[in-house]
């Protein structure tokens, strides 16, 4: 690991000042330390923000508000999370391992780097790590890579599970930085790779994620997360789906659908949602709607299976949420 200077801050102002001057925030460290050890990440200054009072988890009316420093395990186990947004709890539990969930913060989870093997292989070309060097995955081992939102420069998936649930539920995030505070949908945090895959998010320099707000909705209690992977637990998704349904009798009033493991960012499926609206709960409805998820997919040499797996995963998740699985 290369040398760095380390500073622990007690106030948000000190944190933002340090980051505006080029320091990297560190919270749980589960991504950053790992990548620093491999010298994929080479920060010269670290600013430890764990002492900041941003780990609160609370209800605000029907909304669930999660401090950016709250740990994944604490959010998943929290009474208000289970009461208001069980989908958030379920998606968190399906991610990483108990040890990592005890360490990883919610803000860090959203900002975690990709798990493409070439990204951390210093002798392989990777536009994310070394802009302009090329993408080793496009013609390489790409079974785990994306089929949506890819470019000729990067095909890595966003690895977070809870981000998929947050995007499905229309969560927003509040950030503070040198220019003040702003709030925006979590979905807008993530950039598509395009021809600048090294730029992964829309935070401005020095901005700090403060909290995440998950709005309540009539679909929140009828929501499930299904993660399909090579092992039963502690593995990244091949395909995952976060779905939420509001039903009246046998009729779907509205639906929320987002998917993971297939996109270069967590992928909201608005066409699928629209196709579910007003239809009867059941496999025929789910299958017809889920087929719309394939629009715009571009499979690579080794991940054609995701084209088949994606709609099937959505159908099964909808059946779980709709109580017909």
């Amino acid at each position: 690991m290369l040398p760095f200077s380390f500073e622990k801050v007690r106030t948000e102002q000190d944190a933002i000042r340090a980051a505006a001057a080029g320091a990297r925030y560190i919270a749980g460290g589960t991504t950053l330390i790992d990548l620093m050890r491999d010298e994929v990440e080479r920060p010269e200054r670290l600013v430890d923000i764990n002492a900041l009072p941003m780990a609160d988890i609370r209800a605000d009316g029907a909304d669930l508000v999660i401090g950016a420093l709250a740990r994944m395990s604490d959010v998943a186990a929290h009474r208000e999370t289970k009461r208001l947004q069980p989908l958030i709890a379920e998606s968190l539990i399906e991610g990483a391992s108990p040890q990592l969930r005890n360490m990883a913060s919610m803000g860090g989870n959203l900002l975690q780097r990709v798990r493409c093997p070439y990204f951390r292989m210093l002798d392989a070309a990777c536009n994310k790590r070394d802009p302009g060097s090329g993408c080793s995955a496009i013609d390489g081992l790409n079974a785990g890579h994306a089929i949506l939102g890819t470019s000729n420069h990067c095909v890595a998936t966003h690895p977070s599970d809870v981000a998929v649930a947050l995007v499905a539920l229309g969560a927003t995030m509040r950030v503070r930085g040198p220019q003040g505070e702003r709030a925006f949908p979590v979905e807008e945090l993530f950039r598509l790779p395009g021809d600048t895959p090294h730029l992964e998010h829309t935070l401005h320099p020095g901005e700090l994620i403060v909290e995440i707000r998950v709005p309540g909705g009539p679909y929140a209690r009828q929501a499930r997360y299904l993660k399909v992977r090579d092992r039963a637990s502690y593995e990244f998704a091949l395909v995952s789906a976060a779905v939420a349904l509001e039903t009246e009798g046998d009729t779907i009033r509205q639906a929320r659908v987002a998917v993971g493991g297939v996109g270069t960012r967590p992928w909201r499926m608005r066409a699928v949602e629209e196709a579910l609206r007003g239809k009867p709960v059941g496999r025929d409805t789910f299958t017809a709607a889920a087929h719309l998820a394939l629009e715009g997919t571009r499979p690579l040499s080794h991940n054609h299976y995701k084209v088949e797996l994606l709609p099937r995963t959505i159908v099964r998740a909808l059946e779980m949420a709709g109580g017909t699985a």
Partner: peptide, 10 residues
């Protein structure tokens, strides 16, 4: 926790 992934200084 996995003690390899966290800095003692923290």
């Amino acid at each position: 926790v996995t003690s390899c992934l966290t800095l003692a200084v923290m």
